[in-house]
């Protein structure tokens, strides 16, 4: 049985999205760093308050204070305090497993950190198509990671899972900063998807047995560029009456609204933006990337059909005006 978390005070240096990180929790998802330079971000075990003073927003799992700090609380896992875009403090719950802490670090705390650092964190997985990034957005359990896995099996590099980091202010148009290369899959998705997979990856790690969530870390060289142009945001939706998959292109206000609705931890995230900055970022993304809804009857029984449909859709995405 994996031992529960013990704070040792020892840290390891890693690369995270091109940022220099030191971390007390071990992070097998990341590549080690040996440049010897001072870190930009630290992740440490420490006491984390149970509540924030003067929260401006409070959801069941996350609260945000006036000064932009965010507190994430997950029962039986622990508390995460994210501040200034440079620090994540982690207080594990008693008997919390390291894998469970990592699961919520990447699913929740990472998105907050990215926002604090000036990026647009989209609740999406992301894969590469011919040197460009295509984000697969949608609500939880829509099959984003499963679809990304299926696309990876066809040769599309995985750029992100669950949180796609968008630099909306990049000089040549919105770009995706490649995040740690792993996919978190539900047990049935893993069973259905893994057959015949050819790309190199570690043996799946069970992240949280009670949730049936597994992580596959993908072993391949990182992209040659630090950021890839964002080609499209495809939002997955289900319609049980749909006879075959279809796509709907969104423009203008519809596109902006869809992007803001698909932000990672949306309710908390809105509190971390000033309205004008949020508008600048979301409108720039909407103006430069293809924003579409992909509607299918279901993801898992028709995964191969949906995967082919995504590949075709990307080639047909209209280029920005």
């Amino acid at each position: 049985m994996t031992p529960s978390v013990t704070a040792t005070g020892q840290t390891q240096p890693y690369w995270l999205c091109g940022w220099r990180l030191i971390s007390e929790p071990e992070l097998p998802e990341l590549n080690h760093r040996d440049d010897g330079l001072a870190p930009e971000i630290s992740i440490r075990f420490a006491e984390v308050p149970e509540i924030l003073e003067d929260p401006v927003v409070r959801t069941p799992f996350c609260s945000v204070s006036k000064d932009g700090r965010a507190l994430i609380t997950i029962a039986a896992v622990g508390r995460f305090l994210i501040r200034n875009g440079t620090e994540i403090l982690v207080q594990p719950a008693q008997s919390a497993q390291p894998s469970a802490i990592r699961l919520f670090l990447w699913d929740m705390a990472f998105g907050i950190l990215c926002r604090q650092r000036g990026f647009f964190p989209l609740h999406a997985s992301c894969v590469e198509f011919d040197g460009e990034a295509v984000a697969l957005a949608g609500h939880s359990a829509m099959g984003k990671s499963t679809l990304a896995f299926s696309l990876a099996a066809r040769g599309h590099r995985v750029l992100a899972d669950n949180v796609t980091v968008i630099d909306a202010s990049a000089p040549h148009g919105p770009a995706v900063v490649p995040a740690p290369s792993f996919l978190n899959l539900w047990r049935d998705s893993l069973n259905n998807a893994e057959a015949g997979v050819a790309f190199p990856h570690d043996h799946p790690e069970c992240m949280r047995p009670e949730m049936g969530k597994y992580q596959i870390r993908i072993r391949e060289a990182p992209p040659a560029r630090p950021a890839l142009p964002l080609r499209a945001v495809l939002t997955l939706e289900f319609d049980t009456m749909a006879h075959q998959p279809r796509r709907e292109t969104l423009r203008g206000l519809e596109a902006v609204r869809l992007l803001t609705s698909q932000m990672s931890l949306r309710r908390a995230m809105v509190a971390l933006w000033e309205n004008d900055i949020l508008f600048q970022h979301s409108s720039r993304i909407a103006a430069n990337a293809c924003i579409e809804r992909l509607i299918s009857r279901a993801a898992f029984p028709e995964l191969e059909t949906l995967t082919s449909f995504v590949e075709t859709s990307v080639t047909r995405c209209p280029l920005p005006a």
Binding site: G252, N275, S283
Partner: peptide, 22 residues
């Protein structure tokens, strides 16, 4: 009020209220 032209549509946002309009 902030404005952006996206795919030929003018999208406005009141930065105080946060409301959008196309």
């Amino acid at each position: 009020v902030l404005e952006a032209e996206i795919d030929g549509e003018v999208v406005l946002m009141n930065s105080v209220s946060g409301s959008y309009c196309g």
